[in-house]
């Protein structure tokens, strides 16, 4: 390793670990300067997390959030060139730190997914009329093999709380957080409508079908999996409504 590389490795280690002794050849004269860089590092990253996870901070309170952010910086120091990705993995950090309050990690995931979708590639969704035209000549085999392209930045996750109620209750200036456990887990889908990230809760069966189709499964394969989970009759009913909802909400970019 070159002298410069060694020096940079030492300085970086000193930023990441505030208890670390001063790097070689640096004396007391340098300590005050290094402390400013340490403070800049910590402040910039905590501020970035606060800006991305506003509602999570309101949910857990400023002091708890500050501790969680500091913990995240220690366990997951930033590696990307963009500060915007400093929150990568913060939902997992919240899951570790708030094991008995699962809504914290669920909300942190939601804010992170919306943060990413905000700057996802621009695209125009296929609407119902466009889709009808594209599939007008479809026979049964075509429907079976239908593969879709979804909105850039789309993400989804199983949740155990009503995130819509929680989200609204955490608007700035609102009162107490509305934490409502769900009777059965649901799937929350995040995507971007024009320039605005949005989300929607659907059944887990629909969420599983969407997840498999985002991963490249055909409509036929997704329906077969759904039939296994729900039974044939309910699956047929659900599959049609589900596809209509995805198109109506603007989740589908086009046919693959």
């Amino acid at each position: 390793m070159s002298t410069l590389a060694e020096r940079q490795a030492e300085i970086m280690a000193s930023l990441l670990d505030e208890d670390r002794p001063l790097p070689a050849n640096l004396g007391r004269r340098h300590e005050a300067g290094l402390q400013i860089y340490r403070n800049n590092y910590r402040t910039a990253l905590v501020e970035a997390l606060r800006s991305t996870f506003e509602r999570t901070e309101r949910l857990v309170g400023e002091a708890s959030f500050a501790r969680a952010a500091a913990h995240h910086l220690i366990t997951t120091p930033p590696s990307s060139w963009t500060l915007d990705l400093a929150g990568c993995g913060f939902a997992d950090t919240c899951a570790d730190l708030f094991p008995h309050d699962r809504e914290v990690a669920e909300l942190a995931w939601l804010e992170w997914a919306m943060h990413l979708s905000f700057v996802a590639r621009d695209s125009s969704p296929t609407n119902l009329a466009g889709f009808a035209q594209a599939t007008a000549e479809f026979g049964p085999a075509d429907w079976e093999g239908l593969v879709l392209r979804f909105a850039p930045g789309i993400d989804l996750r199983t949740v155990h709380h009503d995130l819509k109620a929680l989200w609204s209750s955490l608007n700035e200036g609102e009162g107490e957080a509305d934490i409502v456990p769900l009777d059965t887990p649901a799937t929350v889908i995040v995507w971007r409508e024009a320039e605005r990230p949005v989300f929607l809760a659907v059944t887990q069966a629909e969420g599983d079908a969407l997840a498999s189709m985002i991963a490249g499964a055909s409509y036929g394969q997704a329906c077969a999996a759904m039939a296994e989970a729900l039974g044939q009759e309910q699956a047929v009913e659900t599959a049609g409504a589900m596809l209509g909802r995805w198109l109506g909400e603007g989740l589908v970019e086009g046919l693959a």
């Binding site: 410069l4 590092y41 400093a86």
Partner: peptide
């Protein structure tokens, strides 16, 4: 300035040693 090593990014404008190597 420098902001990163191969592993981590400080997101701060860190000073360079003013050497021929740098």
């Amino acid at each position: 300035c420098w902001t990163r090593t191969s592993a981590h990014n400080s997101h701060d404008l860190l000073p360079l040693p003013l050497t021929a190597e740098a």
